[in-house]
């Protein structure tokens, strides 16, 4: 029984990590209708640059703040130089090809800079401890991930539902032409969204690295996981991404605990069923 409760906490931890991973992807697609398959690359870049930054600066928290900003600026630059040429309703294939190319280039840049050995970010000293749960040790860092996930979800909700910028963003989803005609520079808004999405990916990379390490090819694993989350939850919808994360995180954790051999398959089975039954995602507010 106690183990089931611990597994439930494990599933919440993993769900929150998934949400932090997927939020950026969902945000970008939801508000710019751009499919960014390089999302996993910004995630691992965040992790790797994070390691270098932590070593150079010597302060985990400062690195946690600065690295997402840096990667966000990189994202904005890439958006400004390339991606804005690829916006448009029927250009998803071009977006997929271009961002896949970006992902492959990033793989090589990472290999050249950081090598192929698995590297790891140690949790900050403050969180490198454990609490006792049913006479057993549970890492504090994992509890902190729950807090981080909820905080990020809350801040994004406030940004989108409670600020003027959020009003513009939501209007953009409904009718982008109308927004431009009211004199709002939608290009700048798009660049900003891409910067925010990639910064979130980088933040997730730093937060997730202590759990799985960093290695060449990780970005594609992350990409597949985040795509599963947004497909199940509803692409481009923050609430969908949140609920999708919880569903996938729960299925994954209990699948691993009860049916380890088929646990990986369970996520994809869930994804396939959702695609068949409700292609817009289980929690999507949008029609089909």
């Amino acid at each position: 029984m106690n183990e089931m409760i611990v597994q439930s906490i494990n599933s919440i931890v993993f769900s929150m990590l998934l949400f932090i991973m997927a939020a950026g992807l969902s945000l970008i697609f939801g508000h710019t209708n751009f499919i960014n398959l390089a999302h996993g690359s910004f995630y691992v870049l965040g992790g790797y640059i994070g390691i270098t930054a932590i070593n150079q600066i010597g302060n985990y928290w400062l690195a946690l703040l600065l690295v997402p900003i840096l990667v966000g600026l990189l994202g904005a630059t890439i958006e400004y130089l390339f991606l804005r040429r690829l916006y448009g309703k029927h250009r998803h294939l071009e977006q997929v090809l271009f961002t896949m190319g970006l992902a492959l280039i990033t793989t090589d840049i990472i290999r050249l800079n950081w090598g192929t050995y698995v590297v790891n970010i140690e949790p900050p000293i403050l969180l490198d401890a454990s609490i006792t749960l049913f006479d057993a040790q549970f890492p504090l860092y994992r509890i902190a991930i729950i807090a981080a996930g909820l905080t990020i979800a809350g801040l994004l909700w406030i940004l989108i539902q409670r600020t003027r910028l959020g009003t513009i963003l939501r209007a953009g989803v409904s009718d982008i032409d109308l927004v431009s005609e009211t004199g709002i520079n939608i290009q700048v808004i798009f660049t900003g969204i891409f910067a925010l999405g990639t910064a979130l990916a980088a933040l997730a990379g730093i937060i997730g690295a202590p759990l799985h390490g960093l290695y060449p090819g990780l970005q594609f694993e992350i990409l597949v996981l985040t795509l599963a989350v947004v497909i199940v939850g509803g692409l481009g919808d923050l609430k969908g991404a949140f609920l999708g994360s919880i569903l996938i995180g729960t299925v994954d954790t209990f699948g691993k605990a009860l049916l380890p051999e088929i646990s990986l398959f369970l996520i994809f089975a869930l994804m396939a069923i959702v695609l068949l039954v409700k292609p817009s995602g289980l929690f999507s507010a949008r029609g089909e």
Partner: peptide, 21 residues
Amino acid sequence: KQFTPFPSMGDPAPFITEIRK
């Protein structure tokens, strides 16, 4: 015995909890 997903096992926490059980 537990056989975990390959190539990537994802988050190992559920497996560790099962071991302790």
